[in-house]
Design a protein around this nucleic acid. Structure first.
Lengths: 316, 316
DNA sequence: TGGGGGCATAAGGTGGGCTTATGAGTTGGA
DNA sequence: TCCAACTCATAAGCCCACCTTATGCCCCCA
């Protein structure tokens, strides 16, 4: 073997596409990615192994097999510790994204268990549960690690019912009206955005779209009955014309990004697509495409304890 | 066993936080998440199994063990196929995020191998390689599945050198100046953003910050020498005052989100943090915090073939 | 010069996930 | 009416990936 001295600053090298199929055969398991992050942070295979509760040989072998799998050296080993290579630093950044998504998955899934001993029972609409709640739960766990949270997801009616009946301590709903017997506070805004592929003609417009143009143009949309569709129909007066109707937000994004046409999506569902310019936002004026996201609780029973902690987190 | 009829619309239930430690023990492996997505899309365990190249019993067992692991039923089985439960739909949405991050990881890692047969050799600065290139590679793979891409990441000087020497077909750099002998086109803008936790005093300001205020306030920053730090120092005239210096973008985000103070970060590094309001943007005026991201190639040798395809993808 | 921290290698155990083989429920057409 | 085709579940067995323990080499420093 060769102890590299860790000072060679040769740039990262890399190459080629492969046949494809079976993502999990080409991407290391989550445990290996976690290990890589620990090595990057702690500067030693052994320390990283201890932190994850495995032995040093296990860590050594796992990093090595990850390097074999990727075909790239990730770590410069030396008798004084281990540092990432340039390629390793890049891979670690990409790995961090995967692990962060896994953390959000974990936070959500934890709350999806029906546990009687939970100290905070939350009811939330689908959009909020999908996009916002995992992040809140991670933040709440950071502040109050011992707070067990349970989540019930449903439409606004279900959420209101659970909160009113005391089966949930705090609710989160989207929509303009709030059921009788509930107090609420606006915690965020769900804005619908018109997007196209960067190459689309609208991406080069200088003027904002108006309601007439939007209503006259066939759009890539979620199916009728979806939340975003309802808001759009209401804003346009029930006139939205579908170019294609798709059943998942992901399919709509993919279709729009491939240039099939303009799409309308919640800004919560976009994010990386916009910053990476896979999709670009088309300004719109004269159309009310936003709705409030609200926390709700029984009138007069201002949230206290863990519910108050969560509410504080979510408010601007 | 019981064939559920798939029509019971009871809402999603869920609960509680757990001790912690060992993310990979609580989150299913990537292969299992992929399988879940395939089941959701195809509506049948068997079809999903065939698509992934495994047998139906393997798929059945894997979904079942995932349900055990998460403590939540994900799929309603019936003799006519399988549909997601409400909880399963939510879990699937979260899983999709993980798999998308894994796809970006894969696209990047593929390109990080040193392959001689690659048809397109790209050199890119770190920021671009980290945040933008994986998405471009996924898009390029969608259009030209047979194009093998190799990636070399380094600073602007290295990138320019490789492109000039013909070792790279196309380069991507950040910064104001372009080396002699290179033509370039602006493909995107890297804007630095001032962010704070939502509870920070600045989040309630009505006026935009000016250069003086920004220079006078200690900020959470990347270490000296980092790209974002250079831009900030240049914009402020070398005056940026660090409150804390951290060595990774992630650490800066975490620190700012916990309320330690204002931070300055590339908008590429933010995204979900902003839309989920873990961080909020503070408007700034009178300071030039943006720089161009450019594609570069040897003067006169306009990119052709795969390089042209990639260039087209990246341009607005 | 010995101790401690770093990493690698070798040998052995265990379990998760795969396969094949089979059975049972539902649907629809011969 | 019954068989073919689809769905999923269960059982038995195999194999490999990953872990552990035990050991050795290298380097630095007191």
């Amino acid at each position: 073997m060769s102890w590299s001295d860790g000072t060679d600053d040769q740039p990262v090298r890399a190459a080629g596409a492969a046949p494809g199929g079976g993502l999990s055969h080409r991407v290391p398991e989550l445990g290996a990615l976690e290990l890589l992050l620990a090595v990057a942070r702690l500067g030693s295979l052994g320390r990283a192994a201890r932190e994850l509760g495995i032995t040093q040989p296990a860590a050594s072998s796992r990093i090595r097999s990850m390097e074999r799998q990727l075909g790239v050296g990730l770590v410069d080993r030396s008798p004084r510790g281990s540092r990432l290579t340039d390629a390793g630093a890049l891979v670690t950044d990409w790995a961090r994204r995967v692990v962060e998504a896994a953390e959000a998955f974990d936070a959500g899934a934890q709350a999806l268990r029906d546990r009687r001993d939970s100290r905070l029972r939350v009811a939330a609409s689908m959009t909020i549960a999908e996009y916002l709640l995992p992040g809140w739960l991670i933040a709440l766990r950071g502040q109050r690690p011992d707070t067990a949270v349970s989540l019930l997801a449903g439409n606004s009616t279900v959420v209101a019912g659970r909160v009113l009946s005391g089966e949930a301590d705090l609710g989160f709903v989207e929509g303009v009206s709030v059921a009788d017997g509930l107090d609420s506070v606006v915690i965020a805004h769900d804005r619908l955005i018109v997007v196209t592929a960067p190459g689309h003609a609208w991406a080069r417009r200088r003027r904002a779209l108006d309601a007439g143009e939007l209503a006259a143009t066939p759009l890539i949309l979620r199916e009728e009955g979806s939340g975003t569709r309802q808001v759009l129909d209401a804003a346009l007066g029930g006139l939205a014309r579908p170019l294609i109707e798709l059943s998942s937000t992901t399919a709509v994004k993919a279709s729009a990004a491939s240039g099939a046409g303009p799409a309308v999506l919640s800004e919560l569902a976009l994010g990386e697509e916009l910053s990476a310019r896979r999709l670009v936002e088309i300004p719109v004026e004269g159309v009310r495409l936003s709705r409030d996201l609200r926390a709700v609780w029984p009138t007069g029973h201002r949230p206290a304890g863990p519910a108050r902690d969560l509410l504080t987190l979510t408010r601007s």
